[in-house]
């Protein structure tokens, strides 16, 4: 009985060993190995060919890039030499251009009141720009672009000054107080520092408000008077003043 058990156990062990040996060998057969070797060898050879071709292409591209780089440098230096200007002259021109740009930008940032007060500068800026345009260096692309942009800005400033709403925005207003408290009459209003600082400018206020002031001696509390832009009396304002005084003289006689 014991011997039989021993034989059966041995039998089972042998069977297990044989099965495991067979299963270990079934992972890959010789034919499969051969096929894989052939496949991978083919892949390796293809990859090596591709790699060689890519290296060749890369070398050609690098050479092409270097040649293009040289051409760009040559064309750029040829363009620079067209004006015949030295580096120093070029730098000076660029500095002048930058200064002019700063000036124009400063004018563009001003309030309407300040721009109106400095409107003569627009002509000065234009004159400077015209000078710069005459230089050979103005033909260079970069300078040409900057000059064009400056011209556009100057034109923009001129157009802004000409707009009716700009002129309207310059007009100050004044609310009339009482004679008793404020001593408000056209003469005194004109005399105020923040109006004209000059009483003789009163006809300007009168003429600027003809719609609500018929007689310059009569203004009412709460009236909102437009204060025209400061400046010498115009011909029509002088004429109106003269007429007023004449009428006054006739009245007193």
């Amino acid at each position: 009985m014991n011997f039989r058990k021993l034989v059966l156990s041995g039998l089972m062990l042998i069977m297990i060993a044989a099965a495991s040996s067979v299963s270990a060998q079934t992972k890959i057969t010789k034919e499969e190995w051969q096929k894989q070797i052939t496949d991978y060898t083919g892949q390796r050879d293809n990859l090596k060919r591709t790699l060689a071709q890519l290296s060749k292409d890369i070398d050609s591209l690098k050479a092409l890039l270097a040649s293009l780089d040289q051409k760009v440098t040559a064309v750029n230096s040829e363009t620079k030499s067209l004006t015949g200007a030295s580096d120093e002259l070029r730098k000076g021109y660029t500095a002048q251009l930058s200064a002019l740009e700063n000036w124009v930008n400063e004018l563009a940032r001003l309030s309407n009141q300040d721009l109106f007060a400095r409107k003569a500068e627009i002509d000065s800026v234009q004159a400077k720009l015209n000078d710069l345009k005459k230089s050979k260096l103005a033909a260079m692309q970069e300078n040409h672009d900057r000059l064009q942009s400056l011209q556009q800005k100057i034109d923009g400033l001129r157009a802004a000054l000409a707009k009716p709403e700009f002129v309207a925005s310059l007009e100050k207003t004044y609310i009339v107080g009482t004679w008793k408290k404020n001593r408000d009459c056209l003469w005194n209003i004109s005399k105020k520092k923040d109006i004209y600082n000059n009483p003789f400018m009163w006809p300007k206020i009168w003429q600027g408000n003809r719609d609500q002031i018929k007689d310059p001696d009569i203004i009412h509390k709460g009236q909102k008077l437009k204060i025209p832009t400061a400046g010498p009396l115009t011909d029509s304002e002088k004429k109106a003043e003269h007429k007023y005084w004449s009428k006054k003289r006739v009245g007193t006689k």
Binding site: A17, A18, A19, S21, V22, K27, T29, K30, W33
Partner: peptide, 13 residues
């Protein structure tokens, strides 16, 4: 078992 082993060994790489 011996046959399996021999056959198995001889057919693999």
């Amino acid at each position: 078992a011996a046959t399996f082993t021999i056959v198995g060994c001889s057919s693999g790489p």
